[in-house]
Design a binder for these strands. Structure first.
Length: 292
DNA sequence: TGCCAGGCCGAAA
DNA sequence: TTTCGGCATGGC
């Protein structure tokens, strides 16, 4: 189990005893599109209908602004993946793939990544938007949709941000309004997802209770959701750590290090976490090559 | 300016 | 069953 400790400090919560977690990596590894980094290294974004700001003054310590110990235990601990024992997960992964130099290196480079557990609907919708798109633009579209269809979030009487829109509010907005958020060909997919979830045709709570393959099949009933979008949703929104999204970056990694007869089962029950290490690693290598 | 992006759909072979 | 063009848009 995770053994983090937290204490209330005025309006903030200080969490200590953290390992294998860096806010810079966790929020910059393409799993979450609602947080931005500040120049001081802190991150600020929206989750659970409120604005959340996190600082990391020490490697093993984070400070979460304007929250309570109760909210941390109830919501944020799991949201940030701090309820999992990453020492044990990484040990198990390393044992299962003991001669795998690529994974070993990726685990080193991305040692601060934790898989978050975000809102299932928001994650599903975000990854529908992500298809054939780049991360800055995905963030922009999600921001626009939140501002236009989401509930405003107030602080001291002022609107400070907007929550991610509910399925019903997207249905109410209609396909043309969604298209106007620069969603392009994805607008009709977003509407189809919103309609199926709002009507109960797709029940996200039931999806969460299914095994990963069945859950993927269920999400793929939505137009515009294929195996990759389903896998990302399941990994980052439903807590399915064995979901293994294969996108252009991971395809490159697999071709480079693993060959044609590769199966995600090779990585074991935490294949999704291994995938995220490799995804981050490949992008890291690519960005270094572009600099030099 | 052109390539590419956390892909998927639908038609054709 | 597999292959492939098309899709909206803007970051780089």
């Amino acid at each position: 189990m995770s053994d983090v400790m937290c204490i209330q400090n005025g309006n903030d919560v200080i969490v200590t005893g953290i390992n294998n977690f860096m806010i810079s990596q966790t929020f910059d590894c393409g799993q979450c599109f609602r947080f931005d980094s500040a120049s001081d290294g802190s991150v600020r974004g929206v989750a659970f209908g409120r604005v959340i700001e996190i600082l990391q003054p020490e490697e093993d310590t984070i400070v979460i602004k304007n929250t309570t110990v109760s909210d941390f235990d109830r919501l944020l601990k799991s949201y940030l993946g701090l309820d999992e024992d990453y020492c044990e997960i990484r040990r198990e992964m390393a044992d299962a793939c003991s001669a795998d130099r690529a994974l070993e290196e990726a685990m080193k480079v991305g040692c601060g990544i934790r898989i978050m557990k975000q809102d299932p609907w928001e994650t599903l919708c975000s990854f529908i938007i992500s298809q054939n798109n780049n991360i800055p633009r995905i963030k922009g579209i999600i921001k626009t949709m939140s501002e236009r269809f989401g509930k405003p979030i107030y602080h001291e009487g002022e609107i400070v941000a907007y929550d991610f829109p509910t399925p019903q509010s997207i249905c109410d907005a209609g396909v043309e309004s969604v298209f106007a958020c620069k969603t392009g060909f994805r607008a009709k997919y977003i509407i189809d997802a919103a309609q199926k979830v709002a009507s109960g045709e797709i029940d996200l709570e039931k999806v969460a209770a299914m095994d990963t393959d069945a859950a993927s099949d269920e999400l793929c009933k939505i137009k515009g959701v294929g195996k990759k979008v389903a896998a990302c949703s399941l990994l980052f929104g439903f807590g399915k750590k064995d979901a293994f999204p294969i996108d252009v970056w991971v395809k490159r990694v697999l071709a480079k290090y693993y060959g044609e007869d590769f199966s995600p089962e090779y990585f074991g029950r935490y294949a999704g976490i291994a995938q995220q290490y490799l995804f981050y690693y490949e992008r890291y290598i690519s960005s270094r090559e572009n600099v030099s």
